[in-house]
Design a protein around this nucleic acid. Structure first.
Lengths: 200, 200
DNA sequence: GTCTATAGGCAGATAGAC
DNA sequence: GTCTATCTGCCTATAGAC
């Protein structure tokens, strides 16, 4: 029982999000959304007057949803290593749907985007690194995990590697580059003693 | 003394390459090239009849130039670690010019590209991984370097991480994510004994 | 090889009726 | 909120003269 149908504004975001994640910001149009949602182009401008408005709404919602997923990871996972693994799984689930991280996609288009969007995208990456830095730092301090370098630089490395792995995996239509990246990243996070997992 | 001016076809590729690396395939037009080269739009179609033709020529030349740079690295560098460091520097020099790796950029646009371009882009990544796999494998066999996992998976991890690091660094207008990635990657390549470099 | 001229289509966006 | 109708501008691409 799906309940009452979603408001048009939300359905527009759903479609636009999928289009950005698969085609990029400069390769989708109001006409594409119009077709998919079943509403005329002009009606879309009622909800999002300009494409820049739509783009900003897209990033805001994606950012908020991602942060929500991170909170849920902290609620449901206890160990730092398990939290990191779930973090990589967040990216993996996007890739398995044939999509790229929306902000990774927009990062490629960054030179063509309005300033508010650029700032929002930078904020997404900053918040991801902040969360990872905290998880890594707490884990190291408590002795549950260990790794080389600072929590901040390892956090940055996680984000960069996962984004790049999605990009390369999608380009070749093969998930192996992504799987290899996850294995290597998790192998960098050493558990206290014996129970080190499989090798990369 | 610059000698005779470059043929138009080459100058078109130079401009188009810069445009793809900064804006992406779907955010540049023949009009942009026309302005920069100083030749009318219609003349461009004489050299590259369709945008797909231009795109394919772009990838072919970039691929060949990159392979040339890899050969030069092997000629001028002796140790495997030094070769890997130079490989990362290839990406760094692109980023410092405010650009993204052209094939990384096109990887984002992959769903909108004609099939021949998609195949060429995949070939670029395959050849990069092949080269890295060889350097890593020979280095490990000779005992000059050591690392976890197979040469092929580490090669894939290098490519993914460097591509992603460029993407994230460019999005934030800050080279730190890229520098962190290079430090972490090189730290994974352990030299034989004492002279391990700076920590990441 | 380069030009002028132009085709045919799609982009983002607006006005105003219902 | 959704519609029809329309605008303006840019897109890729072609025809044919020089």
């Amino acid at each position: 029982m799906p309940g009452p149908r979603k408001p048009t504004a939300d359905r527009v975001l759903d479609i636009a999000e999928a289009l950005v994640q698969t085609r990029g910001y400069n390769a989708f149009s109001y006409a594409d959304i119009s077709r998919a949602v079943g509403v005329r182009k002009a009606s879309l401008h009622h909800h999002y007057p300009t494409k820049a408005d739509l783009g900003l709404a897209l990033v805001s919602r994606y950012h908020a949803a991602f942060m929500g997923a991170l909170s849920e990871i902290e609620t449901k996972s206890d160990s730092p290593a398990r939290r990191l693994e779930r973090y990589t799984e967040l990216y993996g689930s996007v890739l398995r749907r044939g999509r790229m991280c929306m902000c990774g996609m927009l990062a490629a288009d960054v030179a063509t985007l309005p300033k508010p969007m650029r700032e929002s995208i930078a904020g997404f990456f900053t918040d991801n690194e902040r969360w990872l830095t905290r998880v890594l730092g707490e884990g190291k301090k408590s002795g549950q995990i260990d790794f080389e370098g600072t929590p901040a630089s390892m956090a940055s490395f996680f984000v960069s590697s996962l984004e790049g792995a999605m990009l390369v995996a999608r380009a070749g239509g093969n998930s192996e580059p992504f799987d290899a990246a996850v294995r290597h990243l998790m192998a960098r996070i050493k558990l206290p003693a014996s129970r080190s997992k499989r090798k990369p």
